[in-house]
Amino acid sequence: MSTSELSNPDGHCVGPQSEQAGKAASCQGCPNAAICASAPKGPDPDIEIITRRLQNVKHKILVLSGKGGVGKSTMTKELAFTLGHRNLLVGLVDTDICGPSIPRMTGVRAEEVHQSAGGWEPVAVDDNVSVISTHFLLPNKDDAVVWRGPRKNGMIKNFLKDVSWGELDVLVFDTPPGTSDEHISTVTLLQQSGGVSGAVIVTTPQEVAVADVRREISFCIKTKVPILGIVENMSGFVCPKCDKSSMVFPSKFGEGAGERLAKEYGFPFLGRVPLDPRLMKACEEGVPLREIASDSPAVIALDRVVDGLLHQLSLQSAPNASSA
């Protein structure tokens, strides 16, 4: 019997809202069985509120990775900025409750969330991109967030229920590594309040990343989250002096893990994004890479990724968008 069969004997997740959640045969061996079993059952009265909050959001997408260290938050930040560069309205939700990094990467670490008559106002990064994160709610920005699952889940619900998102083309969710409480809560709440458009899976070229990414793909399949495509990050290294690219993680298969996984599962391969040392500077300064290195091969690659993502969403750049 395979590992997946041991953790999910009948191959079907009954979902955290089911009366059999945590008790069904498919729950045996699942690390989240106890969480699902103890979760409140029946209709959630907050779902109607969340549905109203998100009624003017055209698309909700998750950025996922089965492991840490693949540059997922950096990719999320650059995708949000690139979408904003296309003159699309973008909301960015930092669901990494215990390790929020999006505020620093977007240059709004010193800001706070303000309460208005309509609810929490997300922090504006620029005219097109806004952010919500646990970081903004901490009295001391360097405090550790030592929360158990239910409190983390409650905060994610607050991000959806209490934030006045208004009209958005895309609401992007940056998630922590793995398939834990934050992922289950986010997917469940979105599916019950209008649906989730899909997920972007981020990997790196090496084989060591493949096993963890497969688990993330399995999570999406079991929870019925469409996969919009796979992005291979850190695919090559860009010399900041000559802009020439060289492979850092060569594969014995002749192609990176991202492209092979996309072919194996039949998902779109959105593209390869190379390492560029200037990207670290962009993250430290809280600006898009485009702002400090508009001719970087990584910027060109990100534009191609967004082209593919917009195609999957059947969404077009808004009129008067800046040229890529």
Results as ranks from 00 to 15, higher is better:
3 T>F: 08
4 S>L: 15
5 E>A: 11
11 G>Y: 08
13 C>Q: 05
14 V>G: 07
16 P>M: 01
17 Q>R: 04
24 A>G: 11
26 S>W: 00
32 N>A: 08
32 N>V: 00
35 I>K: 00
36 C>E: 00
37 A>M: 03
38 S>K: 02
40 P>Q: 00
41 K>P: 10
43 P>K: 12
43 P>V: 04
47 I>R: 01
47 I>M: 07
50 I>L: 15
54 L>V: 04
57 V>L: 07
59 H>K: 10
59 H>R: 11
61 I>N: 01
61 I>V: 15
66 G>I: 11
67 K>W: 04
68 G>V: 01
68 G>A: 02
68 G>D: 13
68 G>L: 09
84 G>V: 02
86 R>K: 13
87 N>D: 09
90 V>F: 05
92 L>Q: 00
98 C>Q: 14
101 S>Y: 09
102 I>F: 02
106 T>H: 09
106 T>P: 12
108 V>M: 06
110 A>C: 12
110 A>M: 10
112 E>H: 14
112 E>M: 12
112 E>L: 06
112 E>G: 08
114 H>T: 13
115 Q>D: 15
118 G>K: 14
120 W>K: 10
129 V>E: 05
132 I>T: 09
132 I>W: 14
136 F>L: 05
138 L>W: 07
139 P>Y: 11
142 D>T: 11
148 R>P: 02
149 G>E: 01
150 P>L: 04
151 R>M: 14
151 R>A: 02
154 G>N: 06
156 I>Q: 04
159 F>Q: 05
159 F>C: 01
161 K>S: 09
166 G>R: 15
168 L>A: 04
171 L>D: 09
175 T>K: 09
175 T>P: 10
175 T>E: 11
176 P>I: 10
180 S>V: 07
180 S>I: 05
182 E>I: 03
187 V>N: 11
187 V>I: 07
187 V>K: 05
189 L>R: 01
193 S>L: 05
193 S>G: 09
194 G>A: 14
195 G>P: 03
201 I>N: 12
206 Q>D: 02
207 E>M: 02
212 D>V: 10
215 R>V: 01
217 I>R: 02
217 I>V: 03
220 C>N: 00
222 K>W: 08
224 K>G: 10
227 I>V: 06
228 L>N: 06
231 V>H: 06
232 E>F: 13
232 E>Q: 11
234 M>K: 14
234 M>C: 00
235 S>Y: 12
238 V>L: 11
242 C>R: 03
243 D>I: 11
245 S>Y: 15
247 M>Y: 12
249 F>G: 03
252 K>Q: 15
253 F>K: 10
253 F>D: 13
255 E>K: 08
260 R>Q: 03
263 K>R: 15
265 Y>I: 03
271 G>N: 11
271 G>L: 06
272 R>Q: 15
272 R>K: 13
277 P>G: 00
281 K>Y: 14
283 C>E: 15
284 E>Y: 05
286 G>H: 01
286 G>Y: 11
287 V>I: 14
288 P>C: 09
300 I>P: 03
302 L>M: 15
303 D>R: 07
304 R>P: 03
305 V>A: 01
305 V>G: 05
306 V>I: 09
308 G>T: 04
309 L>G: 06
311 H>G: 12
312 Q>E: 06
312 Q>P: 07
316 Q>D: 11
318 A>P: 09
323 S>Y: 14
324 A>N: 13
